[in-house]
Design a protein around this nucleic acid. Sequence first.
DNA 1: AATTATCATTAAATCGATTTAACAATAATT
DNA 2: AATTATTGTTAAATCGATTTAATGATAATT
Lengths: 344, 344
Amino acid sequence: MKKLSIVDIANHLNVSKTTISFILNGRAQEKRIGKDLVERVQKFVDEVGYKPNSLAKSLRTGKSNIIGLMVEDISNPFFASIARLIEDRAYKNGYKIIYCSTDNDTQKTRELISMFRDRHVDGYIIAPPEGIEDDISSLIKDGMPVVLFDRHLPKVNTDFVEIDNLFSTYNATMHLVQQGYKNIAYITFASNQTQMQARLQGYKNALDENGLKPFIQEIVFSQDEELIMAPLSAFLKKHKNLDAVFFGTNHVGTCGLKVINSLGLTVPNDLALVSFDDYDVFKLFSPPVSAIAQPIEAIADSVITVLLNKLNTSSQHISSQSIILKTDFNIRGSSKKAEKAVAK
Amino acid sequence: MKKLSIVDIANHLNVSKTTISFILNGRAQEKRIGKDLVERVQKFVDEVGYKPNSLAKSLRTGKSNIIGLMVEDISNPFFASIARLIEDRAYKNGYKIIYCSTDNDTQKTRELISMFRDRHVDGYIIAPPEGIEDDISSLIKDGMPVVLFDRHLPKVNTDFVEIDNLFSTYNATMHLVQQGYKNIAYITFASNQTQMQARLQGYKNALDENGLKPFIQEIVFSQDEELIMAPLSAFLKKHKNLDAVFFGTNHVGTCGLKVINSLGLTVPNDLALVSFDDYDVFKLFSPPVSAIAQPIEAIADSVITVLLNKLNTSSQHISSQSIILKTDFNIRGSSKKAEKAVAK
DNA sequence: AATTATCATTAAATCGATTTAACAATAATT
DNA sequence: AATTATTGTTAAATCGATTTAATGATAATT
């Protein structure tokens, strides 16, 4: 019981494959094909469950109905959740997803783009690493629909979906200040990506405004958590005067919690905590950690909407749009120094 | 600067595309093509960066170099980690991954299989839901390489990679018993899948052996965490005599922790905890939760090794293998009643 | 010298669809 | 009656590769 081809269908019904193709692609009316014939073909096709070979179709039409999704790391809960939502929306619209993790590695990303291109994906959704500007520009120049998310590339003019990073950290830092914390550190990964820089800036702005001194620790990213925890631990040991710490990403935050546990520090008495990104770890830590929650559903929705839009309107010259979404600041028991002080 | 085709290359070098194809596919020697010609072609191909159109190639050869990966839910950290590792290994071997989440929904899975098939994926890696036996069998009958993981289908004779679920829960339950816990509950999702049944059985066996009474709560899975937490909470409220709880999956465990927090229960004094699957939430809870860690690297390695093996050996009739891997039981502060008692 | 073997290359068929251009058959118009 | 329009259908070209079978040229053998 091998697969039927359009020729088999045509032979069996004694019509040409052209006719079958027209009917199956909804061009029967346009091509004035007899109603009875259309019905006969439809019936038979349904009966035997014939489905056109998508490879052949893609080869001829140049469309693959596949979207390439490049995240930083699919095992990071933030990206995993986004991927999950994008996947759902894409499938509902007849698109499949090929995804991959860039590890923020420019060379790896370059190869992956080339692979996607080779596979003729119809569109790209990318959380781009630094240094990939030229490759993305070249994609766009060749008319490929590209949507960036989580961060953008200032030198590249294309659509992107981001959150208001600067305001988010500014706002959360202000919260710490208002609670009476004076020595607030900011721990993050060393990165020039837009979202990371904006987050850092938001923190700096808030401190500046209040005449407080910033304490910043930038950690080089590594797959090996030990290499993240070591400098983090050293930093906390060095600055004994800190009364609050702001983590720039969920990953840093998680490593931070591990370090805090291993150092035997008490939250929020020794140290108040706030982290970017929100997930179960922060909710379930004791006391639960205040965190900035990204609107992942809205991000996924926006990304896929923008991309589908680009895929459907063939006109290339619609000006590109930037969508900036708001975050939620979930305040929890990890930074209630002021209230505690009052309660005493 | 559009893409070059093999014809362009052939024309430019004044040889036939057949020759180009042979050279590029490493059949130059076999076809006795002159060394100088081979070099000339190689050089030019490298120079212009020509890459064969993979769609055309797939259409002709019937191979797509794509592996279909179907997990239960890509946003679940267990599956996300496995996916990540499988992705790495696959890329290294020249394969790409198309993944999707089944949600344990048989109908959805059926459609996804059909979609994968339609896309001519070369091989399948599936964490199968119940009721999908016939579809998988039909895949296998048609000669498609299939590897199941995390669970298997007793009625389907194919390769699979699993862990020793029964022993894992048996062992961990015995640990609780030895620590002096008498009323140990087991909370899990209602499921007839092999891994879930085996885990439950391991728990039952341990209790049986010690003449203890089982307390079992099976929860119907839902996307909405509230619908998981509600019955879980009700169960804990109803059975005030429990002194320990065993969670059957990381997801149940996480929901369980949330419920325990909201009920204001103290661990391990009110309740000792153990969960299947290990991840940051369990490590960072206070006190940290003992958990059964699956060897995700080994699982990913085994899965991809078995699949690549099947892809490379065309012979269909190698008997299928079952790989059963061991787990680690990470004992943490959430079940140290006995020790505490001694310490008093 | 005729036949066979070896060598190096290529023309043509093929995979399974879509799409363009053409072709009969009938009806309508001049 | 000849020409043009309309209707319904299809032959053939095309997408870009791989693969089979064939070809012409030279060398070796009888």
